[in-house]
Amino acid sequence: MTLEALRQAIDGIDDRIHDLLMERAQWVLKVGELKEKSSQSPMFYRPEREAGIHRRLEARHQGPLPVAAVHRVFREIISASLNLEKHLSVVYLGPEATFTHQAAIKQFGSSFRMVPAASIPDVFHEVEVGRADFGVTPVESSAEGVVNHTLKRLADSPLRICGEIFLPVIHTLLSQETTLDQVQWVFGHPQVLDQCRTWLATHLPGVTLKEEESTARSVLRARETAHSAAIAGVYAADAYGLNLLAEHVQDQAGNENRFLVIGRHDPARSGYDKTSILFSFSDQPGFLHKVLGIFANRGINLSAIQSIPSQGKAWEYIFFLDFDGHRQDPEPASALAEMGAMTGVDVKVLGSFPRPVQ
């Protein structure tokens, strides 16, 4: 076949894809109408339904297009479709182009209205009072550990965990300049600069490192200062109009940040779920071992356990536990019931949600 004939064949496929997208949109509108009629407060975004779509597509996937690309395409299709049913908003720890902003877009696509918040408590508050449908907040870094502000708000808030997002830590060097040899200063958050010291010493020996209170402030300084650069995520290049001088400037590959999606409703079972709880107990020898044994005896896998100091009394702690399964699954439900019946143990289920599809 000639090049022109191949392009015409692709154009024909594009037309069919477009027609199918429009047909899908019509069915989505019918779903939205049915939801409005059948419920006083319909749930338009169903994390378990979206996770099921992605897993079904991954199971049937074959061919040269990477499955990750298929996930990205359908995430945008689902995002646009949901906003045909209802315009939904997501509040995230800002400002624009932070890792949390990237995580929010990864989870919800680009059709949701994204609203930055100045602090983690503000993210929770906006969802609690109904000004946002969902929130995205950082909870853990593989390099720096847990984010205590998020754990403390989870302990006090009526909101539920609806999902989690894992985002690789990829630092980039951004600047008004066009080549590395023009850079004399590099701005960055202290932790970020520390994660990139070897790269900076190798590729920019002799430059002056300037610590800033946030990555966003670093990017603004680089935009305002000649012969300077900032270390930030790749989204910041377009958001702040800067050139991308180098990618993957972090010294250690494989680091990830973990984020939580918070909302006012519990996701239903998807078949591939995780549950997060918090618990506290009176100070007795071996009590934590007894609590964890409840899960071990049922063969329930624990994926994380963290602790933070209790606000009530010195040297007492609140424990946060993640385990496989939904709170309504038989074994997890039995374990939670046994925990709740123990004298001196307080348990709060923070949420059951689909495990992320990468």
Rank of each mutant, 00 (worst) to 15 (best):
P66V: 01
L88H: 00
Q102V: 09
E36L: 14
E256C: 15
E177D: 13
L159P: 01
P354N: 05
A143F: 07
P332Y: 03
E177F: 11
S270K: 04
I10V: 13
A296N: 09
A246V: 07
R217Y: 15
F323V: 00
A229F: 08
A80T: 05
L292F: 12
A253Y: 10
P356G: 04
P330Q: 11
L20F: 11
D15M: 11
I300H: 02
A69R: 13
V249I: 11
A237Y: 02
I53Q: 07
Q8H: 06
L84G: 03
H203A: 13
K290N: 14
A51T: 08
V291W: 00
I165V: 07
E126G: 13
G145W: 05
T137A: 07
R217V: 15
A236M: 00
C162K: 04
H71S: 05
A68V: 08
A104D: 01
N297C: 12
R269F: 01
D11N: 11
F353A: 04
Y45M: 06
G63D: 02
E247Y: 09
L93T: 04
M339V: 08
V169Y: 08
I294G: 09
A341T: 02
I318Q: 01
R60D: 08
R49M: 09
S39E: 12
K290T: 15
R113Q: 11
S81F: 01
V146H: 02
D251T: 03
I318T: 02
V357Q: 09
R75P: 03
K290A: 14
A9T: 14
A296E: 05
T172H: 14
V169C: 10
V28C: 06
G325V: 06
E96I: 12
R258A: 03
V123W: 05
L321V: 03
T198R: 10
I231H: 04
P330Y: 08
L65N: 06
C162S: 10
A230L: 04
S270Y: 06
N257P: 04
E36D: 14
S310P: 01
S228W: 06
K106V: 03
H61Y: 00
H189W: 05
S175W: 08
F279S: 00
K274L: 13
V91I: 02
R221P: 07
T215S: 12
I308R: 06
P116T: 04
A5F: 12
T275Q: 00
T150A: 09
I300C: 00
Y240W: 03
F187G: 04
S142V: 09
I10M: 07
P267M: 01
P66S: 06
Q306T: 08
V261F: 03
V345T: 07
T100V: 03
G344V: 03
Q195P: 08
E4R: 11
